[in-house]
Structures are given as structure tokens and as C-alpha cells.
Write a protein that binds this DNA or RNA. Structure first.
Length: 345
DNA sequence: AGGTTGTTCCGCCACC
DNA sequence: AAGGTGGCGGAACAAC
């Protein structure tokens, strides 16, 4: 009965001939699966409405031969797109055709209406062509980073990130990184518990081991942060065991404690303590996934000091205990062996 | 478990 | 005048 009143958020995928099929299917499955786990009550329950668009709406064939049919043509795209996802593929093929121009023109027109613009893999080149990366930080497939930088010099290319958020533009690295990004967006929209359930169903890791750019706390905070706080946010994410009290951080930021709290909230949408806690939670998750450390050491290395604090934070934010989380998400032992070496560095 | 202690956050006001 | 900034104090909460 109540289901018919639940709000919808449109996620529109844009594809083209010679697309990379996984760039579409991976994120698509993540959003679809999120619908199954979405809360039915709460502050503002909603579901994702998924549509797939192409220039003429006929069909599109992937660069590996898979064919996608019954697509929606661009001129019949819904007017209220929440999240616009541009899949990657063979950009050279796209640009040889008229399809490329139609797509970039459409993007230029419609992008301002969407809440989020997302690219997967070489989809970043399509955003670049539409001018959407100008002045933004962005990433793409590792093999394309130099090319992207040369063709769109106004963009700041981040070569070693799994995904990058800058205001409303989210770009991800090669192929399956799009799945990680989609999962992070679901986490942002529907919370950790839903993301956790989706990851479990799809047998994904909620957070990839290695690399600082993976942190979801960082993702949601940096999305709206100005230049002034970006370095500080990254520094915090890389130093969860440091003294991250308001006093210490305001020193580092070069302003008073009072003003620091005010500016931080204005820039990131959360208070300093909340951000610090999320960063430490992320680190703890990663350590649970990749090590067999006893919880006491793990808590300490995550900046949470004691097991009691670790457990409290997990219960509060995820609704499960650290051991429970580890049982679900720990990497296979032989993988964990390698990962724990880099994690302790 | 429950009290003590410390920290955070924010409204208020004053200063530049 | 007005907007950014800093200090104070109390309520709320976390840590122990």
C-alpha cells in the first residue's frame, strides 16, 4: 500500500556503439540491487528508476559483441534525471561517427539539470568533450590518463584514484572501478547498511584494499569541499592515528577552533568529529577485510584507541560488530597475506 | 552500570 | 553597514 507513494530517483545510463559492456552492466546491477535492499520507511524512502539511453535509441553493440536493445533515444530521455552515468568504450569509434557530436551536445544541454554526473572508465572523455571536466578533478582508465590530460588541459587528472568526486562530477577509473563508484554512490544515498547488503549479494568488497582515494568518508566530504579544505581532508584520511582533535586540526588549518568548526561544516556538510570518525571507520573496515589482527591492535591502528570504541562506532554506523563485518568481508587468506603487508606500512 | 571527566558543537555577542 | 572571525558558556554526548 505504502509502496506506491515511494519517490523515484532516475538513474540514466548513456551508452553508444563500441561501449564497454561492463561499464554499463556493473553499475546498473549495483543500483538495481540497491532497490531490493532500500529501506521502506525512514526519513525519505525512495527507489532508483533505471533507464538506458543511446543517441538514436535503437540498439548498441559493445566492443566485445554484446548487443543491447530497446534503448531510449536521447530526445525521449526523462526530464528529471537524478544521476547521469556515461559508460566508457572505444572513444575513437564514437568520435568517428555523428553519434559522438549528438551525444556531447545533448550532455552539454542536460548536464546542469542532473544532480550528479558520473563517468565510468573512458566515459570521462565524453564528459571532457562536453566541457564538463573544465576546472574539475577527474580520472579515467590508467591507460588513458595522459591522453585525457592532453586533450582537456583544464581538467586536473588524478591518475591513481579508483574514483574522484568534484562537486557534482564523479569519474571512475577503468571498467570495474565503476562498480566501486556506484556502490559508493548507493552508500551516500541509502547509507552503509544498504551498501553492505548490496556488496554481500554481489560478492563485492565494500572497500578495495590499498590506495587512499578509496575512502567513502572522503568521497562524500570532498564532493563539495573547496580548495582550501581538500588537502586537509586527504591528510586526515591518510593519518587516522594522528591527533585529530578540533584544537589540533584548527591549528593545522590556521584559524581558531570556533571558526574551523564553522568553516568545516560549511565546506563539507559534516562536522570535523563526524568526518574524523568516518575516516577511522573506513580504515577499520579496510583492516578487517585485509588482516587477521586482533581487534585491540586493529582499533589502535585505525585511530579508534580501544576495542570498546571500535565496537561502539561499528554498532552505531553499520549496525553490526567488527567481527561480524570481518566474517563477511575478509579477503581470501592468501590475498590477505599480501594486503596486510602494505596495510601495516 | 552509572558517575566522572573530557570533547564537541552551536548560539550568542563582540571585534575588526 | 556588513560580513568574516574569535571567544565564551552551556547542552549533549562520548570515553573511561
Amino acid at each position: 500500500m505504502s509502496e506506491c507513494r515511494i519517490a523515484m530517483r532516475t538513474v540514466a545510463f548513456v551508452i553508444f556503439d563500441a561501449l564497454q559492456a561492463l561499464d554499463l552492466v556493473g553499475p546498473y546491477e549495483v543500483f538495481a540491487k540497491a532497490n531490493q535492499h532500500a529501506p521502506t520507511s525512514g526519513p525519505a524512502p525512495f527507489r532508483y528508476e533505471l533507464v538506458v539511453l543511446s543517441a538514436d535509441g535503437d540498439h548498441a553493440q559493445s566492443n566485445s559483441g554484446l548487443c543491447f536493445a530497446n534503448l531510449l533515444p536521447l530526445d525521449r530521455a526523462p526530464s528529471d534525471i537524478d544521476t547521469l552515468v556515461i559508460a566508457g568504450g572505444s572513444i575513437a569509434t564514437l568520435e568517428r561517427r555523428q553519434e559522438g557530436d549528438r551525444l556531447t551536445n545533448w550532455l552539454r544541454d542536460r548536464s546542469s539539470q542532473a544532480r550528479r554526473i558520473v563517468s565510468v572508465c573512458t566515459g570521462a572523455f565524453v564528459l571532457g568533450a562536453a566541457g564538463l571536466l573544465d576546472g574539475k578533478r577527474a580520472t579515467t582508465h590508467w591507460a588513458g590518463c595522459n591522453d585525457l590530460k592532453m586533450r582537456y588541459p583544464l581538467a586536473t587528472v588524478v591518475p591513481d584514484a579508483i574514483y574522484v568526486a568534484d562537486d557534482k562530477v564523479f569519474t571512475s577509473a577503468g571498467v570495474t572501478a565503476g562498480i566501486d563508484l556506484a556502490l559508493a554512490l548507493v552508500e551516500q544515498d541509502m547509507g552503509s547498511a544498504v551498501a553492505l547488503a548490496v556488496a554481500r549479494d554481489l560478492v563485492l568488497y565494500l572497500r578495495r584494499p590499498g590506495g587512499q582515494s578509496q575512502f567513502s568518508a572522503n568521497l562524500s566530504a570532498q564532493a563539495h569541499a573547496g580548495e582550501r579544505f581538500r588537502d586537509l581532508l586527504n591528510w586526515i584520511a591518510e593519518h587516522p592515528t594522528a591527533d585529530l582533535s578540533n584544537d589540533s586540526l584548527s591549528d593545522r588549518a590556521g584559524c581558531s577552533t570556533r571558526n574551523f568548526g564553522r568553516l568545516f561544516k560549511a565546506q563539507t556538510g559534516m562536522t570535523p568529529a563526524v568526518y574524523v570518525e568516518l575516516v577511522r571507520l573506513d580504515r577499520a573496515k579496510m583492516l578487517l577485510e585485509t588482516t587477521t589482527w586482533p581487534l585491540a591492535r586493529l582499533a589502535e591502528r585505525a585511530g579508534l584507541a580501544t576495542v570498546a570504541t571500535l565496537v561502539r562506532v561499528f554498532r552505531r554506523r553499520l549496525g553490526i560488530t567488527p567481527e561480524h563485518y570481518r566474517a563477511r568481508f575478509r579477503l581470501a587468506p592468501n590475498l590477505a597475506e599480501d594486503a596486510s603487508v602494505s596495510a601495516s606500512a
